[in-house]
Simulated scan of single mutants.
Amino acid sequence: MPVKTFHPSLSGLLAAGLLLPALAAAQDKAAANKKLYCWNENGQRKCADSLPPEAMAAAREEISISSGMRTGEVQRALTDEERAAQAEEETRRRMESLAAETRRRTDQAMLTSFQTEDELRRVFAERVNLVDNSINTSRYNVSSLREGLVTLLRTAGERELAGKPIPEKLATDIRTRHTQLRYNTALQASFERQRAELDVEIDDILRRYRELRASDAPGTRAGIDLPPAPRQ
C-alpha cells in the first residue's frame, strides 16, 4: 500500500507564517503585563507574582516584572473603627456645609421672609437638632470607648502581674482604642463648641431682626421719623 505524503498548501504556510508572529506578540504582551505584588506581613516584606488571600486586605505595591518599576499602589482595607471614624468626619463636614448654607439664607432673607420671631427660629431648628444629636452620639461613643479601653488595660495588667506576655493583638487593640478615644473626645468638644457658638449666633440674629422690625414699624422708615397724619 503506497504511503501518502502530506504537502502543506501555500495558503496554510502563509497562515502559519502570519500566526506565529501574532502569537509571539501576544506572549510578549502578557509577559510585559505580569505584576509582582509586595506587602508587609508581621514586619517582613513579602513579594509574589500572585496575591494570597490573607494579603488581600493589606497595603501593597504592584511592580512590573519586565521593567522592575512600580506601576501601582493599593491602600489597605479600612477597619470597622476607621470606617466609623470616616463616617463621623463626613457628618461633621455636612454639618459645616449646612451651617454655611443657613447663614447665607438668613443674610438674604431676614426681614422680607419672616413676619415673626417664631418663623425665624424655625430656620435654626434643623441645625440645633443636628448639633444636639451629634453631641449625644459623641458622648455615647466617648463613654463606650473609655469603658472598652479600661477593660483592655485591665486585661493587660492582669497578664503582666501573672508574668505572662501581652499578645501583640491586645497591644494593638489598646493603641487603636486609645487613638479612637482621643479622636472622639476632640470631636465631642468640637460639637459642644459649635453648639455654644450657635446659641450666640441665634441671639445675635434675633437681636438684628428685632432692630430691623423696629425700624420698619409704622411711623418710621429706615430710622427716620415720619410726620403725623393730618387731622380730618
Rank of each mutant, 00 (worst) to 15 (best):
L19A: 12
L19P: 02
L20M: 03
A22C: 07
A25V: 08
A25L: 11
A26W: 09
D28C: 02
D28F: 02
K29I: 04
A30W: 13
N33F: 06
Y37K: 00
N40Q: 13
E41K: 02
E41N: 09
E41S: 07
N42V: 05
N42L: 06
G43H: 00
G43R: 03
A48Q: 14
L51T: 03
P52S: 12
E54N: 03
A55C: 14
R60P: 00
E61D: 15
I63Q: 00
I65N: 00
I65L: 13
S66I: 03
S66G: 01
S67K: 04
T71K: 04
T71H: 05
V74I: 15
Q75V: 07
Q75C: 03
R76S: 15
L78H: 03
T79W: 01
E81K: 03
E81S: 13
E81G: 14
R83G: 00
A84G: 05
A85K: 06
A85E: 15
Q86W: 14
A87V: 09
E88G: 12
E88W: 12
E88M: 10
E90C: 04
M95A: 14
E101F: 01
R103G: 09
R103C: 05
R104C: 05
R104L: 14
R104Y: 10
R105D: 08
R105T: 11
D107P: 01
D107A: 11
Q108C: 02
A109V: 01
A109D: 01
L111S: 07
S113F: 13
F114Q: 07
T116I: 12
E117H: 13
D118Q: 09
D118G: 04
E119P: 02
L120V: 00
R121I: 01
F124N: 04
F124Q: 03
F124R: 07
E126G: 05
N129D: 12
N129W: 12
V131M: 02
